[in-house]
Design a protein around this nucleic acid. Structure first.
Lengths: 215, 215
DNA sequence: TAGATTGTTAATCGATTAACAATC
DNA sequence: TAGATTGTTAATCGATTAACAATC
């Protein structure tokens, strides 16, 4: 099933709802949840919760609410998280290694976490051939080859900003269509490729503004 | 000088403009920049650039544009980045260490980067007392004491999600008013305290949506 | 002066909220 | 049935864009 032109603001909130539902699933007591309660836990208004969900279908029952397990499964499906997605990480520096550990831990502990880090890439010959948390490190020259071979669909970029665009081009050429970018630079990508920016210093700089004497 | 009720959407773009101006400052040829050019480089429309800046004053000259160095300094001042801010980091795991390295490198290389990581905190006795990149690791019990002593104003949280809220409460009690949170949980903070979320898995889950067959 | 670009107002667009009929 | 809550439409709110007078 496909829907068109759903706003990014809506998509951003779906993983928030999914997280709440995942937490509630742990408790077998809670089989139902209202938009009121779900909204409160996700930090979103009840009306907006209902409107967001309504873009994709009718998942609730009037007078009752939403079935937790059912809505969770529907959201997973909507977000394309119902089957395993293979992720690449480029740039095996300390940040890259930290994210690798984090991902692997998450993947092992939560068996519905379907984002699998399947390959690491680096340009340093000393790193190529080793494994980090069981994940092999390949040369960046192998991005094209390994992307196809392993079916890599997403990538995390943790290289210095000078090489971020070149790496991006290589990934895009290889067929990667979603990139999480930790390099402090704006990546240029063709139509149809999505980039999410995770820029630490931008966020810190923004926060500094609010330290000024409050009104 | 203080301004009131400026939208968060505006504040979010200021560090973007600042980054462009910082890059341009390196080139002594470019003394002036138009809203057109600045907008293009920052990925924002020219009209929006002018409107954003106009909230804080008149920084340009009609028919000419903006002076790069002047506007850069003004933006630094507006963002409260014209003097050093002391930052704490809580949770010296691999992510915490990676961010420490990243910050220190940035701080050393760019002498107008005024966000100084001044203290690390952890609960592991084996880590307390050591230094990472020259920054001492204290016990989380010392958060109150060290925040005052060192004048810590912002904090980065890289602890497991179970302890994120407790750590947040300790930081807020100690007087920290801006937090960059890497733990996958929604932090509850009182009015006047600002939280920026840097949630890797939320972003990856969002990106997964766009991998579905494009229209 | 002629050309260019700002600062600002009015118009548009999009996202959120309020309200309520439908219905479980 | 009575009470509760959804799905949806209309109203509101806020953010972005278009347009242009002011002016360098």
């Amino acid at each position: 099933m496909r829907w068109k032109k759903i706003s990014d603001a809506v998509i951003r909130r779906l993983p928030l709802y999914l997280r709440v539902l995942d937490e509630l699933s742990a408790d077998p007591e809670t089989e139902l949840i209202s938009s009121q309660d779900l909204g409160f836990r996700a930090g979103v208004s009840p009306a907006l919760v209902r409107k967001d969900l309504a873009w994709f279908g009718e998942f609730g029952k009037q007078g009752v609410g939403y079935e937790v397990a059912f809505l969770r499964d529907e959201l997973r499906r909507i977000l394309n998280l119902d089957s395993e997605l293979k992720v690449a990480l480029v740039g095996v520096g300390s940040l890259g290694v930290a994210l690798t550990r984090y991902n692997i831990k998450r993947y092992q502990e939560d068996n519905s976490f379907n984002l699998r880090l399947a390959a690491l890439f680096d340009s340093d010959p000393k790193k190529i051939g080793i494994q980090i948390e069981g994940i092999p490190v390949f040369s960046i020259d192998q991005i094209g080859e390994k992307t196809e071979e392993l079916g890599l669909q997403m990538a995390i970029i943790t290289v210095p900003f000078e090489s971020a665009q070149i790496i991006t081009d290589m990934l895009v050429n290889a067929g990667v269509r979603a990139i999480l970018n930790f390099a402090p630079t704006k990546l240029v990508v063709p139509e149809g490729v999505h980039v999410a920016n995770a820029d630490l210093s931008l966020e810190l700089q923004r926060l500094a503004y609010y330290l000024q004497d409050e009104e």
